[in-house]
Amino acid sequence: MREIVFDTETTGLSPAGGDRMVEIGCVELIGRVETGRTFHAYFNPERSMPSEAEAVHGLSEKFLSGQPLFRDKVEELLEFIGGDPLVAHNASFDFGFLNNELGLCAREAVCMSRMVDTLVIARGKFPGAKHSLDALCGRFGVDRSARVKHGALLDAELLAQVYIELTGGRQIGLGLDPAEIASEAAPIAVAVAAPEPARAARPPRPHAPTEQEAEAHRNFIAKMADPLWNSVGVTS
Rank of each mutant, 00 (worst) to 15 (best):
R2S: 04
R2C: 06
E3G: 00
E3Q: 14
I4S: 01
I4L: 06
I4V: 15
F6G: 04
F6L: 15
D7L: 05
D7R: 09
E9R: 14
L13R: 09
S14P: 01
P15E: 04
G18W: 06
V22F: 02
G25P: 02
C26H: 08
V27E: 04
E28S: 04
G31Y: 07
R32D: 15
V33N: 12
G36W: 08
R37D: 13
T38E: 14
T38A: 07
T38Y: 04
T38F: 06
F39E: 00
H40Q: 12
Y42T: 03
N44E: 03
P45F: 05
R47E: 05
S48T: 12
M49C: 03
M49A: 02
S51C: 01
S51G: 02
L59M: 15
L59E: 09
S60K: 06
F63T: 08
F63H: 09
L64G: 04
S65Q: 12
Q67W: 02
Q67M: 15
F70V: 05
F70N: 07
F70A: 05
R71V: 14
E75R: 05
E76R: 05
E76F: 00
E79D: 14
F80T: 01
G82C: 04
D84W: 10
P85F: 11
P85I: 11
L86T: 11
A88P: 01
H89N: 13
H89W: 11
N90S: 11
S92D: 07
S92I: 05
F93R: 11
F95K: 00
F97G: 00
L98Y: 06
N99C: 13
L104V: 03
C105V: 09
R107T: 02
E108A: 14
E108D: 13
A109Y: 01
M115Y: 03
V116I: 15
D117A: 12
V120M: 08
I121G: 04
K125H: 07
G128F: 11
S132G: 08
L133D: 02
L133F: 01
L136N: 08
L136Q: 11
C137K: 05
C137S: 05
C137L: 09
C137Y: 07
G138I: 02
G138S: 05
F140L: 08
D143W: 00
S145K: 15
S145C: 12
V148E: 15
L153W: 06
L154A: 12
D155Q: 10
E157H: 08
E157P: 00
L158V: 07
L159W: 06
L159P: 04
Q161I: 01
I164P: 00
I164W: 00
E165R: 13
L166R: 11
T167D: 03
Q171N: 10
I172L: 13
G173V: 04
L174C: 11
G175E: 09
L176D: 03
A179Q: 12
A179M: 08
I181F: 10
E184N: 15
A186H: 07
A186C: 06
V190E: 14
A191G: 03
A198R: 11
R199Y: 00
A201M: 09
R202Q: 08
P204G: 12
R205S: 14
A208I: 06
A208C: 10
T210D: 11
T210M: 09
E211I: 04
E211G: 02
E213V: 13
A216I: 07
N219K: 13
A222R: 13
M224W: 11
M224C: 09
M224E: 13
M224P: 00
D226K: 07
P227M: 10
L228Q: 10
S231V: 07
V232S: 10
V234G: 15
T235S: 14
